[in-house]
Amino acid sequence: MLELSNIDAGYGGFQALFGVSMTVKAGEAVAVIGANGAGKTTLLRVISGLLPATAGTMTMEGVSLRATPPHKIISTGIAHVPEGRRLFPRLSVENNLKIGAFIPAARQKFAERLAFVYELFPRLKERRAQLAGTLSGGEQQMCAIARALMSGPKLVLLDEPSMGLAPVIVAQVFDLVRRIRGEGYTVLIVEQNVRQVLRIADRAYLLEVGRLKASGSAAELAASDEIRKAYMGI
């Protein structure tokens, strides 16, 4: 579904990604793990076009992403749930969802998808008139995921969904991710919370200072001594 090969990217003179190649197949949940500053967020920003890649190729179902402007990426079926949720804080929950269905193809199916999202996350239905900025952290994450689903994506990019949340809520957020997987969405998730994310992913890539260091099934990586030592504190 998603194919990256030899992607370079950076900020100004600083290169953050070096020749990253990866694939995500339809129906998979793929995790990208790594420490702070490894380039995980950069990778997702490159895929969703917010940061232009400087070299390499990137396709979504055969469509070149590097040739697609940022606001058109979503029409290829990729929805990005950015780091730190990035809701529109002064809009109501429902208006956030409405904007999630901004692209013309999604607007027609707005009512249908809204019903679906409210069924998936009943809490959001209760809070629909509330300003998004006044939701709790877990609810904001829920709203951010729901907003992404409103565009009817095939692939959902999740950037650190557990960031800044209390441990109890983190478990709930991973449960949300499991639920959207269950609905048939393909998921590419970036996380520092290695132990938890390897439980819900099928495969994972390990990113270290901008380079892919390892890849394999989630179970393999979770069993690897090196990763257990460096990222799980065991």
Partner: peptide, 20 residues
């Protein structure tokens, strides 16, 4: 809605498909 969104967060607006 698009402009309201863009005035609050340009990146997030672009990622939901708004040509800011």
């Amino acid at each position: 809605y698009a402009l309201d969104a863009a005035s609050q967060d340009e990146d997030a607006a672009a990622s939901v498909g708004i040509d800011v």
